[in-house]
Amino acid sequence: MVRGVGALLLGLACVAVPAQERSLPAGALRSGSTYLSPELRAMQEDGFANPGMLWVEKGAKLWGVRAGADGRSCADCHGDARASMRGVAARYPAFDRAANRLLDLEGRINQCRAERQRAAPFAFESEELLGLTAHVASQSRGLPLKVAVDGPAAPHFARGRMLFERRIGQMNLACLHCHEWNAGRRLLAETISQGHPNAYPIYRLEWQSAGSLQRRLRACYSGVRAELPAYNSADLLDLSLFLAWRAEGLAIETPGVRR
């Protein structure tokens, strides 16, 4: 009901941010890494043995590679990523006024590639896109997530919350049934996490590879036997924005290691 009032206020006057009650207060937030075995947590924290570092390193190489019609590299505009990209990943997904749509970090990199470098965008889940995203996101390691959900992002945020709470699939489950009501409990052999997006791209052992948040969300859709949304679809982006807001304050851990 409170949501209804918020939506009404928004619809009437587009005034301030709608009422945003948090079901997970900041003190109750638990990063996915806290559900890992000590061995896996050690693997994530080991800057050498973390296999996600293979992607980070690949991205760091690509950062300096000139591409596209203009023959420009990321570094030609952005300089040293350690300085220029620090804190950037904490603000994504973000609404881009020029493109008039919501962009996640992958989307922003591909937009930069298409418009600034005038090169062909990378395919979703390609080694290149995962690498660059991991490289950029890892510059924000330790910084708290803080996305903007007001202004033009507000409708995306509201839709993301709706998707989080809506039952889907043959299992007839919503995100919140597992990741809020039953987080910390067991689902067969797995402990259900709170479902925070603070370590992406992650190296997931089940995949034997690195993967994006969108891939992980699609895996959840598949888990509840729902129709998979396409990569970069409004559903996945809006949901990503809501998840980032829900995890506000959690430190970025990219590249995370997960089961």
Binding site: A49, P51, L54, Y203, L205, Q208, S209
Partner: peptide, 11 residues
């Protein structure tokens, strides 16, 4: 001499 039992991206 690794074989099929070894994970991807071995250390």
């Amino acid at each position: 001499e690794p074989s099929s039992g070894i994970a991807a991206n071995p250390l």
